[in-house]
């Protein structure tokens, strides 16, 4: 189905916690969105518009955060003491500690990924400093709240076939965090795998998947 789909990135100004993501999509893309289209929006931008950001200066790392960040590989957002503290603030420090202990034990028997399975969704979604474009490059950005609710709100306002909130990067990783009823997250992940949001997803936070419903019907026929 992917070959028949046209993906249209929509450029906006840099969005901030003062913006509403649904209003923004309506403002920048209303005329481009049809009833067969799916609107996808970058999760970090949704989180920013929800005010789900903090900064190292606002956090006071606890002893556990200082210890636990040392056991996370360097490329991970939780490898910094503030990334770890931010995750603890939303998921609970004892849950994180238990997840890390379980994760370390699981690694001993050759099973990876247990820490992120147990630590809670935000542990995997947090972007540490440098994870987003200026002026949020000095901020820690959490994952969005209620991504499926956001998707439903977009669909209700724009009259499109569906909507999705997605976490996509240039490493061929696409995770759909929330979708409207009836959409398949796995299918959308494949469509978005090449990161149509681009390197700077805050500049093109909206991607319209044109004629998705028609292509789906054709594929199922």
């Amino acid at each position: 189905m992917n070959m028949e789909l046209e993906l249209i990135p929509v450029k906006t100004r840099i969005l901030t916690p003062k913006d509403d993501i649904v209003d923004t999509i309506e403002k920048y893309a209303k005329d481009m969105i049809g009833p067969d289209d799916v609107v996808s929006v970058a999760e970090s931008v949704v989180a920013i518009t929800q005010g789900r950001i903090t900064s190292p200066e606002e956090l006071a790392p606890c002893f556990l955060a200082k210890v636990m960040c040392r056991f996370v590989p360097q490329k991970g957002s939780l490898s910094s003491v503030y990334g770890m503290q931010a995750a603890m603030a939303v998921e609970g420090k004892w849950r994180m500690a238990f997840a890390m202990l379980a994760g370390l034990l699981a690694k001993l028997i050759g099973r990876n990924g247990v820490f992120y399975e147990l630590a809670g969704e935000q542990a995997a979604l947090i972007d540490d400093v440098t994870g987003t474009m200026p002026p949020f490059d000095k901020s820690i950005v959490y994952g969005p709240h209620d991504p499926s609710g956001v998707a439903e709100a977009i669909k209700a306002r724009l009259g499109c076939h569906g909507a999705a909130v997605a976490d996509v990067n240039d490493l061929k990783r696409a995770a759909v965090l929330g979708v409207t009823k009836g959409l398949e997250p796995a299918s959308l992940s494949k469509i978005l795998i090449d990161n149509p949001f681009g390197n700077a997803s805050q500049r093109t936070p909206i991607v319209i998947i044109k004629n998705y419903a028609k292509a789906l019907a054709k594929a199922n026929a």
Partner: peptide
């Protein structure tokens, strides 16, 4: 005259 390069670092320990 003097010119300072001021920098803020964050890594494993606190900033």
């Amino acid at each position: 005259f003097s010119l300072d390069i001021v920098y803020q670092v964050v890594a494993r320990r606190e900033w």
